[in-house]
Structure formats: C-alpha cells, structure tokens
C-alpha cells in the first residue's frame, strides 16, 4: 500500500513537470510571438521589454529559459505582473487560494452529505414514490445554473426579504483565522448555491450505482446470509459503489479548486482563484495567467493522485494490480 502511494506521488510529480513544460512552451515558444511583449503586457515601453528579455533570458536556449521561468515562479517567487506594475504573482495566488478553498471545501461537505443521503434513500426506496421525487429533485438541481441560483439567493437575502435575513452580512469574505463564525456566515449561501448542482449529480449517480450493485450476486449472497436490508445496503452495496463517487469527486474537486467555481465567486463577490484567472485573462496579464494555470493543474493532479490512493484503499483489486 505504501509503495503504491509513493509510486503514485512520483507519477503525479512527473505529470506536474510535464504540465509546466507544456504551459511554458505555449506561452514562450509559440512561433511568431515575442514573449517579452507578452509578459510585459500591452503598450510596454522598449526599456521594459529589454528588462523583461534580460530577466527571463529570452535570448538564451529554451531549457535555460524554462529553468529561469520556474525559478522566478516557484523558488524566487518574484514573478511580477507588468499590467499592474510591481504586483507579484505568487502573493496574489496565495491570497486568492484560501477563499476558493473555503468555498469549495464547505460546498463539498454539503454536496457529499446531500448527494450520498439522497442516493441512498432513493435506492433503498426504489419503486416507491420517494425515489422519483428525489430523482426529480436531482435533475432540477442539476438544471439550475449556479449564477442564476446565486443571483436569486442574493436577491432574496440581500434585497427583497432582507428583514428576514438581517443576520446575514453583506457579500464578501472574512478569513477563518479572523473569525470562524463570520467566515461561515459569509459563506453559507455560496456553499449551498454551489453544492446544489453537485448534490443533484451525486445523488443520481449514486442511485444508479446502488441499483446496479443491489442486482449483483454478492447482494443475493448477503441476503442469504440473513443480513438486514440496511446492512446490505450500506456495508455491501454502498461500499462497492463508493469507487464511482470518489472518482467523480476527485475530478470535480480538482477543477473547482483550480478556478471552475468562477461564476459562484463572481455572484457572491469572492475574490478567489476563478476571479483572479478571469481578470488576468481580461488584462492579458501573462505571468498571472501562467501562475493560475500552474496552480489549477497542481490541484487537479493532486486530487487525482489522492483519488487513486483512495481507490486502492476502497478496492483491493486495484492494489494487487500494481
């Protein structure tokens, strides 16, 4: 098991390395483009261009340029944005990351709870009225765009029925170290908004997996052993269906932390990674874009490595293959 984890982490590292190379090549080796002008941003003066070219060794061979770039980005951490002159890239990302992480982790807890509960209840009651009700709720939740739901939530809580929600602070973000209570209060509706979509997806996926599992031979064996239906559902069917949920979760979590929660961040005025990426794209702020891409890739690779380790933990057959 330990060997499996180590191997998986090494391969994750290699994937990260290749991503960084690809990102570097896209930005700096695209033919016909002057990378110095790219980094320096729009309407940069010739002196700035010369400075950038010197700093990143743009007249030197590609591998050295790659090394310098990574040196500035990861170790020196002094890569600066030339659009907003003097603002360093890394602090922007480390400033935005906790906001996004707070949003995603809280929402993930909610949607996992709701999705697993919904899927379990629906599968346990298949054929009864509650099953199609939950499944309809699921499809409705999947169909509602997050930004629309967010706007409606804001309209209701901040405007139309503000007297009812007077306990709710104005949209924004308060760090958890500053005040855990205010942190949760600021994030409760963003969490619910973001979790709605995913809870619907997870409930539907889990129900389908459970219904499949309940038709498996091993469930018949479990019944013939005299186990209770509840134990069969949780210990046998759910346990074997978790693999699907875990892999789905890895993908969703990675991409959301990497910035895919942009719409929710915009609606609730959270200056997270999604917002940062979006703004840097608008300004063509190349160093920031690069930083954000690397950061997003990091979380996706990390999440998929964690998922694979969880796989091996959940399913002994995966372990023995390696």
């Amino acid at each position: 098991m330990l060997l499996f984890i180590v191997r998986r982490l090494i391969s994750a590292f290699l994937v990260m390395f290749s991503i960084s190379v690809v990102v570097f090549l896209i930005f700096f080796a695209t033919p016909g483009v002057n990378p110095a002008a790219r980094i320096a941003g729009r309407s940069a003066s010739p002196e700035v261009l010369a400075h950038v070219a010197a700093e990143f060794g743009l007249n030197r061979p590609l591998p050295i340029r790659y090394g310098l770039m990574m040196w500035h980005l990861l170790f020196q951490q002094d890569l600066t944005s030339y659009v907003n002159i003097g603002v360093k890239v890394i602090p922007q990302i480390t400033g935005a990351a906790p906001i996004t992480l707070s949003l995603i982790v809280g929402a993930a807890v909610l949607w996992l709870l709701a999705g697993v509960a919904g899927g379990l209840v629906a599968a346990a009651n298949r054929g009864k009225w509650i099953d199609p009700l939950i499944m309809f709720g699921g499809i409705a939740a999947v169909s509602i765009p997050a930004y629309w739901l967010g706007e409606v939530v804001n309209l209701v809580t901040q405007n139309k029925f503000h007297s009812l929600f007077s306990w709710l602070p104005a949209p924004g973000y308060v760090s958890i170290t500053q005040s855990p209570w205010q942190w949760a209060l600021h994030l409760i509706f963003p969490w619910i908004t973001l979790a709605t979509l995913y809870a619907g997806v997870y409930a539907r996926v889990l129900r389908a997996e459970l219904v499949n599992a309940l038709n498996e031979d091993y469930v018949r064996t479990a019944r013939a052993k005299g186990l209770s239906e509840r134990r069969i559902l949780v210990k046998h069917a759910l346990r074997c269906s978790l693999v699907a949920i875990v892999s789905l979760f890895g993908l969703d979590f990675g991409s959301l932390v990497g910035g895919a929660a942009l719409l929710t961040e915009v609606v609730f005025g959270l200056n997270g990674i999604g917002m940062l990426t979006y703004n840097s794209l608008l300004n063509l702020d190349l160093p920031v874009i690069m930083g954000c891409v690397m950061y997003g890739a990091f979380f996706i690779v990390l999440a998929s490595a964690v998922v694979d380790v969880l796989y091996a933990f959940l399913d002994p057959r995966v372990r023995s293959v390696h």
């Binding site: 031979d217 019944r223 013939a224 046998h236 959940l314």
Partner: peptide, 24 residues
C-alpha cells in the same frame, strides 16, 4: 426470515466468481 437465512438454511450459489463481495 433473517434468523433462518444463513442461520438454519445455508445457501451455495452457482457462480462463485461473483457470489462474494469483492471489497472484503
């Protein structure tokens, strides 16, 4: 039936490849 199933009446199935829960 639960005390009877597995307690007083044991059952063996046709396909041993799928009769056991794979994760335990």
């Amino acid at each position: 039936m639960q005390p009877i199933r597995g307690g007083e009446i044991g059952m063996i199935f046709q396909d041993p490849m799928t009769a056991l829960t794979p994760v335990y």
